[in-house]
Design a protein around this nucleic acid. Structure first.
Lengths: 226, 226
DNA sequence: TATCCATTTTGATTCAGATCAATCAAAGCG
DNA sequence: CGCTTTGATTGATCTGAATCAAAATGGATA
């Protein structure tokens, strides 16, 4: 329970109540679906371990990775609006999630104000995150996007107690490209460029950040350079 | 009260309770700020009339329009996560909003389940909307983006009882460009192109859609054309 | 180990949109 | 009523990323 994203600031009894709601755990193999676009929404999913991507797909076949998700994050928020999942959630490595029946969560959040409050903050944070991606897609160049992406991963690994300068990517260049609004070749070139400048070292999926400061520079200095 | 976005499916007594919470109305002149990035978050704002834009701005000065908002929509959802507004909200025409103290909304939503449910749907819908914009920014060409934008406006005007084929834009080409991840010249050219094809008629801010069906085609056929 | 398939890298070329620049129209103002 | 400012359109040119193509690498499997 403790490792869930939700119980922040709850007391023992409240955690107990929440624990009764978070009934089942589910394992998803690498490549497996946690949920599919168009299916009925029942539950949110809290990631206990692993790594997943979410993909939106339009009627016209257009498809895009809308996010990469790791331990402690909550999936399914988009489905609340229509009770239908609006994206696929696919495991990029073997993963484990807790299923949280949404109706029950709403019910108990009525009696635990801090839970409700926290849940609202999580939804709001997702909106803020999306605005950040919109900014990235709308105004950054390829290299800036990749730098931003790597720094984002770096920070999230750090928070979870892993190295912020050395990690393995779980996704392909194509998936990164889809997320960043770039073609996979462009992603590859951007990696090579950053490596040539000794800012990072790339060995296929393994990333070593040599110079965090300069990587941060890469992200936000387009206006300064010009 | 009735025209607010929140009271969907509430009974008389519940509407009464909500009405007590939605205390003050506020008028904002064209060009005025409803709220600013970095200021303390207290309240959500329900738009009663008018038209506003929200702008995210990064530390590095980068700025982007994250949305255009009209009657019945709810502003401020992004600020719940940190209790600080993460964007500017600026009126593009004289507007009127209802202030909804968020703490009170959370409180009464505990006693009115349908209100809580509805509020969650509104937040979730915002997430879905943002994913749509991400898709647009990540995978559409200029002309497709503009078509998508016009159709979105068209639908929203229709819902509010206005013409879906004839309306006045409240924002400049530059603001449209910022929202769509394009430069203003590109927006202007895309307008001209659609006009040359007799799909729309443009007279400065006045838009007449001559062929809704073909405009929809424009939006989603990049894969078919190729 | 050899084979196959997916993934990644790199190069050459093309193209959509950015940038630079000029013109024009409408609105605000002394 | 000119004058200035702001916004919009259009043209010419440049550039970053897409596209097309080929080779290299890696992992999975027989």
């Amino acid at each position: 329970m403790r490792e869930l994203c939700l119980p922040v600031g709850l007391n023992e009894q409240e955690i107990q109540i929440l624990g009764d709601v978070v009934s089942s755990k589910r394992k998803i193999q690498r490549g497996g679906y946690l949920h599919r676009t168009g299916t009925k929404f029942q539950s949110l999913f809290a990631i206990r371990s692993g790594f997943l991507k979410t993909c939106a797909l339009e009627e016209d076949g257009r498809q895009q990775v809308t996010g990469f998700h790791m331990t402690g994050e909550l999936l399914g928020l988009d489905a609340i609006s229509t009770d239908i999942h609006t994206c696929d959630a696919i495991a990029l490595e073997d993963s484990e999630v807790c299923e949280i029946p949404f109706a029950k969560l709403e019910e108990i959040s009525r009696t635990i104000p801090s839970l409700m409050r926290h849940f609202h903050k999580i939804m709001s944070r997702e909106i803020v995150r999306d605005h950040g991606v919109m900014l990235l897609l709308g105004s950054m160049k390829a290299e800036e996007r990749l730098a931003s992406f790597l720094l984002n991963l770096s920070r999230r690994f750090l928070i979870r107690g892993y190295s912020e300068t050395e990690f393995n990517l779980r996704m392909t260049r194509e998936e990164i490209g889809s997320y960043l609004g770039l073609k996979l070749e462009t992603v590859s070139r951007a990696f090579s460029k950053l490596q040539d400048e000794d800012i990072i070292a790339v060995d296929n999926k393994h990333i070593q950040i040599n110079d965090l400061a300069r990587l941060k520079m890469k992200m936000g200095n387009s206006s300064c350079v010009t």
